[in-house]
Design a protein around this nucleic acid. Structure first.
Lengths: 181, 181
DNA sequence: ACTGGTTATATCGTTTCGATATATATCGAC
DNA sequence: GTCGATATATATCGAAACGATATAACCAGT
């Protein structure tokens, strides 16, 4: 699923500018499983326009840059429906934090403690955001996704809290050079 | 954390070829939080060599292509230690499956059921792999990472099993065009 | 008065992804 | 017995994506 199709999905919810789409990826309900910056979104919208999947309407604003409001076309809707119908690829969890913890013996214990505490805080904050949003007007899909996120992020936060001390206690700094081969 | 540093990390565990590094990303304990193909690994190793972080030893094999066995240098070890000490970036969870579920009203119920069932199967298989590996010789870091993965993947599988029927029952296919704005 | 954040678009170099090419050997299936 | 799949091993190439930066005006806070 490339950025193009995700943008198309957002546009099925209503017209939007590139800037607004990016805000949804950064703050909205999409942030927990998708991500794309301006450098991906603007080229994607340009391409979607060339393919006839969206139309653009330029909207002048006083003392602001012009808006380019994108609208999905019936062809775009069809393309999105087809894309969503294909078996989705594997879920990917990418974590620099876990990489660091894997090589825990390269870090002094106080650095490990700091990294784990930071990560717990981060997960708790995300969880708070997911729980605090008003789900009353949402459909089945968005609700399902939100609750899935809560389940997964909650499990991560709990695990870190329960295993923080154990990890720090059994950490093996400093590393023995040539220990493994 | 770019591919270069992840490769360096793998090389702290012992010498390896590009092919072997990729296998670790695909099958080994790294697969749950990192990913890179040949197209990223080979250029990364070339660059690491140019920077003096690794050395290469060409190993001829009969009736096989030559091996290029990479070894980390003290400078490489220092660079990796420095990279690991920096505060890691945010954890990222990317899921085409959740994107599809978000737009559940574009999918007929039987397609939703199939997608959810496939995903449950996928998570259960991954979980099985994580649980079945022999952790006896592992250090604190790899064990921590493995158990974290089990906690998160287990939570995902459980959530999907518990909410599968609810989602299918309340799904809203076919989509009402122009329903939202 | 200055700093930082928000709205909005766009580009550009680097990095990464994904598919493909090459070559051989083995192993199970038909 | 051969045919296709899988494993070993490297490498490249175009397309896609990332991340930082530029531009430009406004507003809120210090």
């Amino acid at each position: 699923m490339d950025v193009r199709m995700v943008c198309l999905g957002v546009l099925t919810l209503g017209d939007a500018t590139g800037y607004e789409i990016r805000k949804m990826f950064e703050e909205g309900p999409f942030q927990y499983f998708t991500d794309a910056g301006f450098g991906s979104i603007y080229p994607a919208l340009k391409k979607l326009h060339g393919e006839g999947y969206v139309t653009v309407r330029e909207q002048a604003q006083d003392s602001r840059p012009d808006k380019k409001v994108y609208t999905i076309t019936p062809a775009g809707r069809a393309a999105f429906t087809a894309a969503i119908a294909k078996a989705p690829g594997a879920d990917k969890f990418r974590s620099d934090f876990l990489l660091a913890m894997f090589f825990e013996h390269f870090m002094p214990p106080d650095l490990i403690a700091e990294a784990v505490d930071e990560r717990i805080k981060w997960y708790r904050e995300k969880l708070e955001l997911m729980q605090s949003c008003d789900r009353s007007g949402w459909g089945a899909g968005p609700t399902f996704v939100n609750l899935f996120g809560q389940a997964v992020y909650g499990a991560a936060a709990n695990f870190l809290e329960e295993n923080r001390d154990g990890l720090i206690k059994s950490a093996g700094y400093p590393p023995k050079p040539e220990a493994a081969e």
